Every structure is written in C-alpha cells, then in structure tokens.
Computed example of a mutant assay.
Amino acid sequence: MADITAATVKELRDRSGAGMMDCKKALTETNGDIEAATDWLRAKGLAAAQKKSSRTAAEGLVGVAVAGTKGVAVEVNSETDFVAKNEQFQDFVRTVSTIALESGVSDAEALLAASYPSGGTVSEKLVANIATIGENQNVRRVAHVSVNQGVVVPYVHNAAAPGLGKIGVLVALEGDAPADTMETLGKQIAMHIAAAFPLALSAADIDPVQLERERAIATEKAAESGKPAEIIAKMVDGAVAKYAKENALLSQLFVMDNKTPIADVVAKAAKEAGASITLTSYVRFQLGEGIEKEVSDFAAEVAAAAGVA
C-alpha cells in the first residue's frame, strides 16, 4: 500500500474541498492515487467536479500577442514567481510570443529552434537567461487562433505587464460586423472564458476520454440509488449531458448575467449589428495547469542538511 502522507491528504483536500478524514479514506481506497481518489470522492458525493484550475501551478508567465486576424498564446515557466516579475524574463516571454506569432510555429520544440532577434536561437537565449537569472526556465506550449474575416481578441487576467500574466485568453470571431462591435464582444467573452474555464467550444468537442470518466462517476453515483436499470441509464445520460453543457463554451451561461448561453450572446450581438458574427475558436492558457510541483518537507530538508536522522 502506498504511503499516505499529510501533504498528499492536504493536496486532495485543496482539490476537492472534502473533509480531511474523507480525503484520507479516499487515498487509502485508491492506493494513494490523487486522480482516482478525486473520482472516488465525487462518486460518493463528497467533492465537487475537479477543475483544472485547482491543480498546483508552476510559476512563470503566459504571453499573448495579436496581429491582424491571427493571435498566439505562449506559456513560459520558471521556478518562482519572483522571476516572473523580472524584466529580463518578461522581455523574453514577450519576444518569444512575437516570434511564435510571426513564424506560425505551433509547438514548443519548433519555437525553441526559431531564431532570436539578438542572435542565436530561442533555446540558446533561454539557456543564457537561466545562467544569468540563476533559475530554471522552460518554454512549455504554444497555441494559435485565426480568422479569415473578423477579429482575434486578446485578454490577460490580472496582467503583470502588457500582454503578460497568469491567465491568457484569445477569442476568434469570424464575420463582417464592425470591428469595434466584435472587439467589445470578444473582450466580454474572453473575460467569461478566463472565469468559467470551458473545456471546449461545443459539447461535441469535449474530449471523449473526459466524458467517459464522467460517465463512470455518474454510473457509480446512480447505482447507489437502488433504482431500476432503465432509470439509472437515464440518470447517467442526463448527468453526462449536463456536464457537457456546463463545460462547453457555447452552452455555458454568460458570467455577466448567469442566464444567457454564450451562443445566444453572440447571436444577439450579430442581430443588433445587422451583420454576421460567429465564435469559431478560443485559447485559454492558465499558468502551470496540469503541472504538479514537488511538495517538499522543509523541516526534513533542514534535518537532512544538518545530518540529523
């Protein structure tokens, strides 16, 4: 059986909002697997649906850049938030965002191989930054959006500097409505995306693996009701459909009024403008999502350094 540490229990509690003893039991039941323990708690009705934003975040910055009808988001990680405030690091993130936008490279490996304006490659500049700043850094990911006619609207939540922050969003609106109309709409939708964390543009775009995971959780919950099999099947289908609706951008309720689906917000704006507007794609990068930082025991580190058993 895996060793269930206090740090692991705390991490599960932070993720799930469940009680300490419930978290410990969940970890025991799942042999210390955090993901499985989260699902166990949810199946027992002891935790809310996990949000990616609840995962432990690495530090660094997300950069967004837009030119004409295309935009890009880039995530660059560092070890501490202190480095994210460093002007040299901020300039690097801003520059690599521009490089990604202009070159069209769509993955971190290709971006690292691209030429850096001051000479050498992005990778070589990164190595030099690590040496001078004294902290490990990493270009993690890149994503592009574009439209044929319309606008790409950038948004950074709680920006550390222009175009840089911990949550970066790009919204692509296709259509022939006036640019200022679409810019205003795009900014509102981008703010919604930052807050509501949609998993995909539409329900059909949600990862099937994630939907199957939700189906398994819903099935276990429904089975405990003791209802007939045909009723349980309908309960499960309803739960999965509700999950998809709540996590698809177009069907999410607009955070500004909590009653209008985003698809209807777009349609209303198009009708008022007497022109076409279609929300075709978006990008939402939250710093460090999916990265688990190592949890260290400071007291143990001190004891080890002092040679204390």
Rank of each mutant, 00 (worst) to 15 (best):
V266F: 14
S146Q: 08
T184C: 11
T132F: 14
K245M: 05
K242Q: 03
T98W: 11
A303D: 15
F92P: 01
Y155D: 08
E87L: 09
K268S: 12
P228W: 00
F298Y: 15
N31M: 02
E59F: 13
T219G: 10
P178A: 01
V127C: 10
N158K: 13
G238I: 02
A218P: 05
A190K: 01
A128H: 14
A269D: 13
G288W: 07
G60M: 06
K227C: 04
A275V: 10
A37M: 08
A305N: 09
R13C: 06
I232P: 15
S115K: 12
A299T: 15
A37V: 11
I206H: 05
A270N: 04
V72C: 10
G238E: 08
K10E: 08
G32V: 00
E246V: 01
D205S: 05
G238Q: 03
A177Q: 01
N148A: 15
A43E: 00
I277H: 08
R215K: 04
Q188C: 11
F254P: 09
I217K: 00
T5A: 07
V169W: 09
S97N: 06
V236P: 06
Y116D: 07
E246T: 05
A37E: 11
A37S: 14
D39Q: 07
N258M: 07
A267I: 06
V265M: 04
S115E: 15
D257G: 08
R284P: 09
T8M: 14
G165K: 01
W40D: 00
G17I: 02
I193F: 12
V93L: 06
A305I: 06
Q88Y: 12
I167Y: 14
T98H: 14
G134Y: 12
N129T: 04
A48F: 09
G175D: 13
V105C: 10
A303T: 08
G175S: 13
T98I: 09
M235W: 10
A203M: 03
E11R: 05
S54T: 11
D33K: 00
A26F: 01
N77S: 11
V127N: 14
L164Q: 00
A270F: 12
M191I: 10
V76G: 02
L170C: 00
S251C: 04
G290P: 01
L185F: 04
K25Y: 10
E174D: 02
A273M: 05
A128Q: 13
L201S: 02
